[in-house]
Design a protein around this nucleic acid. Structure first.
Lengths: 194, 194
DNA sequence: CTGAAACGATAACATATGTTATCAAATTCA
DNA sequence: TGAATTTGATAACATATGTTATCGTTTCAG
């Protein structure tokens, strides 16, 4: 999240670099839980290699809501900021190399940054971007049919479909994995034109 | 949005008050468009009396995503911040009294505030709260059945059901108005127990 | 290498939900 | 007040989607 904005505010780079050394590097296999649902988020997670999914449990069934890949960072933001139990769990999908920056250092970093003149703009941009992202996801989820959503994913983020097992994608699209199979087979038969 | 946080940061109150005089008071009938979909948001809207809905158009059909009532403020945040066409329209549901604060003053206000020591904390809290709100809406939308969503609305925000016409609520719940009727009649017959 | 687990496709069936049309009641407005 | 509009309920039908089960194929751990 924050690290995405490195290049936009080069004036702040010394701050990022100062904290790099506090990151803990880990190599983990697939299906490693990085944050349990209900636990308070204690780290900012940066993905060097591999990918992870964010999901929550509902009546014993996983519901995946988002995917993250190389060079992306994440945390359960609301848990991290409000110190509340996370609504989501975070789990690796592939064997991955990740960096964890413990919360205390993130807090320190934010605290230091807050005295810098560009911080306000940074935060506005970050929160604006996050909000725009969530709004777009939300609107797409309720406006588009699952078929349209699948097709958009195919066009704009095919790497997700290639790397992520189908049943994780299915719920991200809002359907069962069986129905996603139906959608794919319908598309393959050329019955649908966009 | 910002105005919600007045009480939390009393140190900043002088700033709010300085800008009150630039607000434009309007009395408008029901079904007045306050922001058109596709236009760039030019005002921060504060509701003194009445209520409004935020919606977007899809194939000629409205899709309502949020309601706002007395003493709440709103704008199409992503349009406002990024200077991009709004994904949403804003319309009054009841005859309303609203205040508009033109964008230029909001920018000025933010600019002034950004030099204040509490601004970083304010922004973090505001954006954290917004994000938590959207995440909760999103999770509820995909996790809960429409029936559960209706029941939650009935328990937690009954004033919405009382004041807002049913077809606006239906889409907010993610169903057609016909199906919302079905849900209500099923509940009324006591066939469902929560 | 081999057996177990994960994965993806498909069929059959059940259910939820949308669509269209109709009607009655409530509300608005000229 | 009286007509027009809005609102809400309901029925009938069509469609989308979920659920469960089965069966190959692939992947993976021992």
């Amino acid at each position: 999240m924050l690290f995405h904005f490195r290049n936009k505010f080069p004036q702040l780079n010394p701050f990022w670099e100062k904290y790099l050394e506090f990151q803990k590097r880990m190599e983990v296999p697939a299906k490693t839980i990085l944050l349990e649902e209900g636990k308070i988020s204690q780290n900012y997670i940066f993905i060097e290699k591999g990918c992870v999914r964010v999901f929550f449990n509902n009546n014993g069934r996983d519901k995946t809501v988002q995917f993250f890949f190389e060079n992306e960072g994440l945390t359960s933001f609301e848990s991290f900021i409000n110190n509340t139990p996370s609504l989501f769990a975070i789990e690796t999908i592939e064997p991955s190399v990740i960096f964890l920056l413990p919360k205390q250092y993130v807090i320190e970093l934010i605290d230091e940054l807050s005295h810098e003149p560009y911080f306000a703009q940074l935060i506005l941009q970050v929160s604006g971007a996050r909000q725009t992202h969530y709004i777009n996801e939300f609107v797409s989820f309720i406006r588009d049919t699952p078929e349209e959503r699948y097709h958009k994913l195919l066009n704009k983020r095919q790497y997700i479909i290639k790397r992520v097992p189908q049943h994780y994608i299915a719920f991200y699209l809002g359907v069962s994995s069986v129905h996603l199979s139906r959608i794919k087979s319908k598309l393959a038969k050329g019955k649908v034109h966009f």
